[in-house]
């Protein structure tokens, strides 16, 4: 914008008969601003470490910000107030999608029937999918540690597929769905091998 205005000014200057040579334009070196911002849904803040020119700067407070110029040691961080964050980053923040949501469905012991509570969650899943428009839906089966690990991968996949079929029958677009099994490798409640644990026999439905 500034460059264009300068060029325009020069054009006028030449048109007016001023014969001075155009100024040498030196490009500004890159400058980056990095901010540790509050989490949009209120999860813990954590920290970020910015490394430039061999120097590391820790950002640990909400709004902690550092501006780094190419080839220079980064300065100490400052706190960027919320209205400044909104002014600089508002458009990107406005484009953030809502977070993924997870539903955990359980089966009756020893068969492939969803528990009544889990069955009752199906409408909420469909409503969320409709609200999100184009989500992907990940359906992942999990088992407890009863039986062999390989057999549990198969069991987890069978249950995940049952949930998939149930959601498709209820109207979910099959093209959005991805089915997987973690078998007994990702328990909610860690247990020794060959332990029955109802909370680990589950299918997780994640709407992204």
């Amino acid at each position: 914008m500034t460059a264009r205005r300068a060029a325009l000014a020069l054009t006028f200057a030449f048109a007016a008969g001023c014969g001075s040579p155009p100024p040498v334009v030196t490009p500004t070196p890159p400058r980056d601003l990095i901010v540790l911002a509050p989490h949009p849904e209120g999860a813990p803040l954590g920290a970020a470490v910015v490394t430039a020119s061999g120097t590391a700067v820790d950002l640990t407070a909400a709004g902690a910000a550092v501006t780094v110029a190419a080839g220079q040691t980064p300065p100490a961080p400052v706190i960027l107030p919320p209205d400044e964050i909104a002014r600089i980053f508002g458009e990107a923040l406005g484009a953030l999608p809502p977070p993924a949501r997870r539903f955990v469905l359980y089966f009756e012991l020893g068969n492939d029937t969803l528990t009544a509570e889990s069955q009752a969650q199906v409408p909420a899943i469909l409503a969320l999918v409709a609200e999100r428009g184009q989500p992907d839906v990940a359906i992942t089966g999990h088992t407890d540690t009863t039986g062999a690990a390989a057999a549990n991968v198969v069991l987890g996949l069978r249950r995940a597929t049952l949930v998939r079929d149930r959601l498709v029958a209820a109207g979910l677009d099959a093209g959005l769905i991805e089915v997987a099994s973690h078998g007994e490798s990702n328990p909610l409640e860690p247990t020794p091998d060959n332990t029955e644990q109802a909370r680990n026999r589950r299918v997780e439905v994640t709407v992204r």
């Binding site: 954590g46 920290a47 970020a48 490394t51 430039a52 600089i88």
Partner: peptide, 17 residues
Amino acid sequence: PTSIIGVRGTHVLVKAE
């Protein structure tokens, strides 16, 4: 263009000029 950011946190904003 100037930095590498290690993330131990949950929400980081970056502006690259």
